[in-house]
């Protein structure tokens, strides 16, 4: 615990001090690179504009993540029930995943009237694939011998899904969820950038763009800090959920206690 916690914190403090020192020593103007102290001050002074923007971005992120869980999970279940559905749909899920969101975001924003909905769709598109592919993998990695056992015990298909496939797939699903949490935030921010260049959004990315235009670089950095902090918070929250759900039985959660 101690070294694991202290080492990165010390490293962070060292980097911040180095940053502040360089900015002062080389007299870099704040519109090129503000020092961390100025960024912190801006974070406090501009909290009134930044906080509502953070709420907007976080709302879209969490809605997109929820939609990703529902659609990704439901599709994974469907795929595990029918080989035909999987064979027909999975390639298209991959196409959606590999198409850069920056390239299709303008289309989606143009097609969908409601900006919030279009942002939601963009963030969802980025976030749903890890959940889908991980859950499909989990549902399919069930021990062959256990499936035989369930068959011998006369378990119905539904029972086998409920009592064996779903619990066995849970660790995989949670692994996908942790990746998707970060991706949902990235998707939301990217979509806001695209929408923001048309002047139609109010989230953190829009604040970054706006600060850039107005040369308020310290505010831009403050917004960046908030996005990173939000990403870390989402990751930690999802890790905590994962730990709480698995701590009783799964290797990944038991590893450290041995």
């Amino acid at each position: 615990m101690s070294a694991r916690f202290i080492a990165p914190v010390l490293m962070g403090i060292f980097m911040l001090v180095l940053w502040e020192g360089l900015v002062r020593a080389m007299a870099i103007p704040p519109y090129i690179l503000p020092g961390p102290i100025l960024v912190a001050k801006t974070l406090v002074s501009d909290w009134g504009t930044l906080w509502p923007a953070l709420v907007v971005t976080l709302t879209i992120t969490l809605q997109a993540l929820l939609a990703a869980v529902l659609v990704g999970g439901a599709l994974a279940l469907l795929f595990s029930l029918s080989r035909w559905i999987e064979l027909s749909l999975f390639p298209y899920a991959i196409i959606l995943q590999v198409t850069p969101i920056v390239a299709i975001a303008p289309l989606i924003i143009a097609w969908v009237d409601d900006v919030d909905v279009s942002l939601l769709i963009c963030a969802w598109l980025v976030a749903f694939f890890p959940i889908l592919s991980n859950t499909v993998l989990g549902l399919r990695s069930v021990d062959r011998n256990l499936l035989d056992l369930f068959e011998l015990y006369g378990a119905s298909r539904w029972r086998t899904l409920l009592e064996l496939r779903l619990p066995a797939a849970l660790p995989y699903f949670l692994g996908g969820l942790r990746i998707s949490g970060g991706l949902a935030l990235i998707g939301a921010v990217v979509a806001e950038f695209v929408a923001g260049s048309g002047g139609r959004a109010s989230g953190l990315a829009y604040r970054i763009l706006e600060s850039g235009y107005q040369l308020k670089i310290p505010r831009m950095f403050a917004a960046l800090v908030l996005i990173s902090a939000a990403g870390i918070a989402i990751y930690l929250l999802l890790s905590l959920i994962s730990h709480l759900l698995l701590r009783r039985w799964h290797e990944s959660a038991l590893g450290e206690e041995r």
Binding site: D143, N145, L146, D148, L149, L152, E163, L164, P167, W249, H250
Partner: peptide, 10 residues
């Protein structure tokens, strides 16, 4: 049927 491994659900 009893298998080689215990096959207990964790």
């Amino acid at each position: 049927y009893m298998a080689q491994r215990d096959l207990l659900l964790p």
